[in-house]
Write a protein that binds this DNA or RNA. Structure first.
Lengths: 255, 255
DNA sequence: AACGTCAGTGACGATTCGTCACAACTGTAT
DNA sequence: ATACAGTTGTGACGAATCGTCACTGACGTT
């Protein structure tokens, strides 16, 4: 009585990924606001009905793209977490991996934010929502891990009755704010003149870490030189890709 | 030969405001993603053509709403700037006025972010874009003023070769990140459990100010008690309104 | 060969956007 | 009063998009 499964599970996954990649391409070309299901269908060797078998609507597709984006970011974070060096240096490195991500994949960066909005999540399938939650936990694990390393080697102590989660969030929201406001998607920020995103992220991170009392403090260490070396060693491909785009992480303006 | 101006300038402004307010109401009810020009037209005693005389498109209307929102926020900021007390306290107060704004007018808060996206600005009229820039400068003036006060009374010194604008931006992006991620519009943040936006904003602000070396440092002052008193004195109406919404700024969980 | 099930299709109705040809109005000149 | 010119207001319309559903075709079982 079990109805025969005529369709391969992996083939379905592959097709889903094909649709997602086509959509990402369209977003890169036309902007997220001009993404239409009709265009996606036209890009893909399936009909509209088939696409709607995978994604119950436009928002569901957007959420799936967001999930994919989080996965990409998660890999970058994990590499920063695993890198050598003291905890504070690695947290700075992680923040810069976030920046690299935002520069390299602006469309993906935008999709994550977009997928977080309640209107998107509200119209999405349970399946994709749960998958997103799973991926986010994985993402936070790297941040969590670095903070714990700092606590374990006594370079960091929990300040002002805060717990680990709060410290993680502090760093996250700071980096998020700086990158969001400066990394290009927001063009009309009046305070933007003369602000250089890599310099501000660097200063802001260090001020926050100093405020946490996370050793070695800025006055006792040359975090900038360290960071440049670590970036070059950990993300050589990504930095080259950024150069291809005509951009470059510039540390010349601050030392 | 001058063609007669049959329409009053102030009447036009009034009508524009009426359209904006109707749109804001619709956004509050249905969410920003379900705002349609047809619905706006239905809410308003004018025809579609007339509405399109004021706003060249949906995005232009959105930008105008964003401008209106910035104006509202600018008033709150200015009040924080003018309040008594030391500079650091007032900057903290300003950050909390931002939070009050986000809680009290979530639709407006969302519109500002939305209006910043390039797809909206790209489809808007020059007139509304310029007006937005003007309003933003006004907004930044309050932040700028508080930092300058801090520099003047020597409670703050520019750290690490940074200038005033960079310090302003640091505070702004930090507050922006924390409030955006926690103030409710973003529901699915995995790190969100057990995080209380007023507590995190308070801690994050103080850590950043400590990192800047902005006196009095946290260890030397009871910023929390001060803040509560200042908020009650400066924003009594707003706090009452927040209570009306079933929410309340809760300082019990941290002291 | 007949039948049942499932994948796949694309035409269709419903919405929404923004426009434009026309209607209505206002003030001035005759 | 009437004619007229310029301005303002209207809503029907075409184009674009969304998501659905009745249908087709392929495959396996009886």
């Amino acid at each position: 009585m079990t109805p025969p499964k005529l369709l391969d599970e992996t083939a379905l996954k592959e097709r889903e990924l094909l649709i997602i990649n086509s959509a990402v391409l369209l977003i890169q070309q036309n902007g997220i606001e001009n993404l239409t299901m009709d265009k996606v269908v036209a890009q893909v060797p399936f009909s509209k009905g088939t696409v709607y078998k995978h994604f119950i609507g436009k928002e569901d597709l957007l959420l799936a793209i967001g999930n994919y984006s989080i996965e990409v970011l998660g890999d970058l974070f994990y590499r920063a977490y695993q890198f050598k060096g003291c905890a504070r240096s690695r947290m700075l490195l992680l923040n810069f991996s976030y920046l690299i991500y935002a520069i390299l994949y602006p469309a993906l960066f935008q999709c994550v934010m977009c997928a977080k909005s309640p209107n998107v999540a509200g119209k999405s399938s349970e399946k994709h929502i749960h998958e997103g939650e799973r991926l986010e936990v994985k993402l936070m694990t790297s941040i969590h891990g670095i903070v714990e390393d700092g606590l374990n080697d006594n370079s960091l102590a929990l300040p002002m009755k805060m717990d680990i989660q709060q410290l993680c969030f502090s760093n996250w929201s700071m980096a998020y704010g700086a990158i969001t406001l400066l990394s290009g998607e927001v063009e009309q920020c009046s305070g933007r003149t003369n602000l250089i995103v890599e310099r501000e992220l660097f200063n802001l991170s260090n001020m926050l870490f100093d405020g946490m009392g996370w050793k070695p403090l800025t006055k006792d260490s040359s975090h900038c030189a360290e960071l440049q070396i670590a970036l070059a060693e950990l993300f050589p491909q990504e930095l080259a890709q950024i150069k291809t785009k005509g951009r470059e992480l510039n540390f010349g303006s601050f030392s």
